[in-house]
């Protein structure tokens, strides 16, 4: 049983949508193709990269990316080609440009708002505590109690 399990582990390979006939002979180019594919959104299934999508268009795009790599295109040229046809939407990582400044800046903005709120509250309570202090009567009672403790 245990042997069978181990055998299965050896035989089983991760399930990829990339079909054997798509894979390039050159491992370096193939890796680049895989990296690009992982960043490109499938336009049919939308929340899946074309690297793991079984949609027809995704397969076409994978093959197209490989053809362009073989033809000597740079990664940037391939991304530009896809964006020219399908828009920024095909990229899982939106580019930094005026219309996306808010998108990229939002986490920092929210962090700043939160941090300033925390700082503001902390300084306020500390000031309040410092301002009150102890009255002469309270101080006398505290001294008396401390004296008692010493004995």
């Amino acid at each position: 049983m245990r042997r069978l399990f181990l055998l299965l582990l050896v035989i089983a390979t991760p399930l990829w949508a990339v079909e054997p006939d798509e894979v390039l002979d050159d491992p370096v180019l193939e890796q680049r193709a895989r990296d690009i594919s992982a960043n490109v959104r499938c336009v049919v299934c939308q929340n899946e990269p074309i690297d793991s999508s079984n949609a027809g268009v995704a397969r076409d795009l994978r093959i197209l990316i490989r053809e362009r790599l073989v033809a000597g295109n740079t990664d940037a040229e391939i991304y530009d080609f896809l964006v020219a046809r399908y828009g920024d939407f095909v990229l899982f990582r939106p580019p930094l440009k005026p219309s996306t400044y808010l998108l990229w800046g939002a986490p920092i903005l929210i962090l700043l708002i939160g941090a300033s709120a925390v700082v503001l509250t902390l300084t306020r309570t500390r000031k309040a505590a410092a301002a009150e202090g102890l009255s002469a009567e309270e101080q006398a009672r505290l001294d008396a109690l401390l004296e008692q403790d010493k004995k």
Binding site: V43, V44, G56, V57, D60, L61, L64, R85, Y86, G87
Partner: peptide, 13 residues
Amino acid sequence: ISGRAGIEWGVTG
């Protein structure tokens, strides 16, 4: 037949 023109047109379906 290849769907290449479809890609040029940005066809999604």
